[in-house]
């Protein structure tokens, strides 16, 4: 933008990033309080089993907020703290969005061209996808996980990876930067959501196992998990996010190969970053298979989803910073 100093714009952007992080911290706290209070609410409501409320039959239908079968649930839980958490998340998102756009203006290009910017945009998409999904499914029980992730990664990336705006290196001047990296971030956001659901699914499955083993008249334990869909519903929802993520990841792989063919003269060369993109793709293909393999549904496939997302994070952090390869775009050296 003529007339504005990119350094100044970036400073403002940075300030907004920290504001967003602070608001996400508050959102995290609100969500955490919500989870703590849910165990009480759930007990008061004296609902018997989770399966009746919030939950869909046979993986179909919609999980909608607070709509237990009205007859038996005495007081419908309103989850005020969760609402506060969502409002704060949305507010943080606005700051985060403006910060990202300003960074793009300062750099006069798309704001996902080095590790700091990729973290900025990637986490923006994670929060955006989470908020967008909230309009259809009540996933606020994931709120503390998602905002926690946002705080840790956005704060961490800003501390560790922030670099001044500099002109793009030649290999990055390509439309494929715009497409390939953006779609990869989008896939990451969906995998993150699937990851969160898989984590809760594991915890929920453990609880359900214990519940099934416990004597019928045992005092129900206080837990927010009573207000969360059952493990099957969590699994099928996680799967739905993961398959959309998988499509985007497949596209990322293809677009990356086209770009590599233009930039380096070969579409595939088992460069470290290519290796990891491939490993992640195969892991999620494994996850999808596991869901269709007898004996692998449920807890085992959930672990694959968790391992898959761990590999995504590993690919973005450790591989970018410490592994040698052609994808030297972190912007951290030279």
């Amino acid at each position: 933008m003529p007339g504005t100093d990119p350094l100044l714009l970036d400073e403002i952007s940075l300030l907004l990033v920290w504001t967003a992080v602070a608001i996400y911290v508050l959102a995290f706290i609100a969500y955490a309080i919500d989870l703590a209070r849910r165990s009480d609410l759930a007990l008061k409501a004296k609902d018997e089993v989770v399966s009746r409320e919030l939950v869909t039959a046979g993986g179909g239908g919609v999980i909608s907020a607070g709509t237990g079968s009205s007859a038996s649930v005495a007081s419908k839980p309103r989850y005020l703290w969760a609402r506060l958490g969502t409002v704060l998340t949305a507010l943080g998102f606005v700051f985060h969005l403006v910060a990202t756009v300003l960074r793009g203006i300062a750099a006069e290009r798309v704001p996902w061209s080095n590790m700091y910017e990729f973290a900025l945009t990637g986490l923006l998409l994670i929060v955006a996808v989470y908020l967008a999904v909230l309009t259809r499914y009540d996933l606020r029980f994931l709120g503390s996980l998602m905002t926690g992730l946002a705080v840790l990664l956005l704060g961490g990336a800003t501390l560790a990876f922030h670099v001044e705006v500099v002109p793009l290196a030649d290999p990055l001047k390509s439309v494929w930067l715009v497409v390939h990296v953006f779609v990869a971030s989008l896939a990451t956001a969906l995998f993150a959501l699937a990851f969160g659901l898989s984590v809760v699914q594991l915890i929920q499955a453990r609880r359900e196992r214990k519940l099934a083993e416990a004597p019928a008249d045992a005092e129900p334990k206080r837990s927010f998990l009573r207000t969360v869909p059952n493990a099957d519903a969590l699994e099928s929802l996680a799967y739905r996010f993961a398959i959309v993520g998988f499509i985007f990841w497949t596209f990322t792989l293809i677009a990356g190969s086209i770009w590599a063919n233009d930039a380096w003269g070969r579409f595939w060369g088992f460069d470290t970053k290519e290796v990891w993109t491939f490993v992640i793709w195969v892991l999620y293909a494994g996850y999808i298979h596991a869901r269709a393999t007898r004996g692998w549904r449920g807890t085992r496939s959930a672990w694959l989803s968790i391992i898959g997302f761990t590999a995504v994070l590993f690919n973005f952090t450790i591989v970018n910073v410490f592994f040698k390869g052609l994808h030297a775009y972190s912007g951290l050296t030279t």
Binding site: V282, A285, H289, A292, T293, R294, G295, W296, L304
Partner: peptide, 9 residues
């Protein structure tokens, strides 16, 4: 399916 899965992993 199990073999396919194990080989993929």
């Amino acid at each position: 399916m199990r073999t396919a899965l194990v080989l993929l992993l």
